[in-house]
Write a protein that binds this DNA or RNA. Structure first.
Lengths: 124, 124
DNA sequence: ATAAATGCAAAGCCTTTGCTAATCT
DNA sequence: AGATTAGCAAAGGCTTTGCATTTAT
């Protein structure tokens, strides 16, 4: 694993997740790591193919990349676009049970209005 | 609602869902409807903002557009990339209950190996 | 020495947008 | 007439790729 790949992985692991390629690139620069965007994309691709990180696809946004944790679910604020982790216990088993299908995995993104945005709306 | 918008909506409603903009465009042409890609994209955008159709985001693929049905979940074959509808009863309520958060909606895409691909793998 | 990874620049794909002409109310 | 929408062509954002160079094994 090359220095750059390790750096990119570290950036993702150290962050609270959900970084875009652009953000990974900027965090690398902040750390004084020299990388090109091509390398960032290439390594994000490789790392997610290898299952070391996770690629998350969200409507209308560039892909985000996540470290892999127990929390496999995301919650997205429809107003401010903030993405957070959230864990729904035993969901895979539950889905397998309900559908009768053996799953490789699943992607779940729930949409809500976050407390901050709700508060802002109330004030108007 | 313009003729083209109606045609585009019809194409989606008549299909089994999950069309890309490109596919909608082609189906329009097959039906002899004259539209430009710009119009297809514009109308798919408008229709999904209005909640008349649904935009589905899938990793590594262009957005797909769906008619709105009871089945709000998708299942995606990791081998052949086929996408199908599947319904998981009462999932929104279940998720709200498990998380304690009031949801606007959610996107769920389950990943599996479809029976055809499983069969192919067995033969090897 | 061989294989793998980088950086750059260019291309690619998917999607949106500015503008003019056409269409609808 | 006034407002909405279409079509075209051009631009835009995000991502990938070819190729020469560097780095690691």
């Amino acid at each position: 694993m090359s220095k750059q790949r390790k750096d990119i992985l570290n950036v993702i692991n150290e962050s609270k997740g959900h970084l875009t390629a652009e953000e990974v690139f900027m965090k690398c620069k902040e750390k004084g790591v020299s990388v090109s965007m091509a390398t960032v994309y290439r390594n994000l691709g490789i790392l997610s193919e290898q299952g070391i990180i996770r690629r998350v696809s969200i409507i209308g946004q560039p892909d985000h990349y996540d470290k892999i944790l127990n929390a496999h679910e995301h919650i997205f604020c429809d107003r401010c676009g903030k993405i957070q982790d959230i864990h729904v216990a035993d969901l895979k088993e539950l889905l397998e049970e309900k559908t009768g299908i053996q799953l490789q995995s699943y992607d779940l993104c729930m949409r809500y209005i976050c407390p901050e945005c709700k508060e802002k709306e109330r004030q108007r």
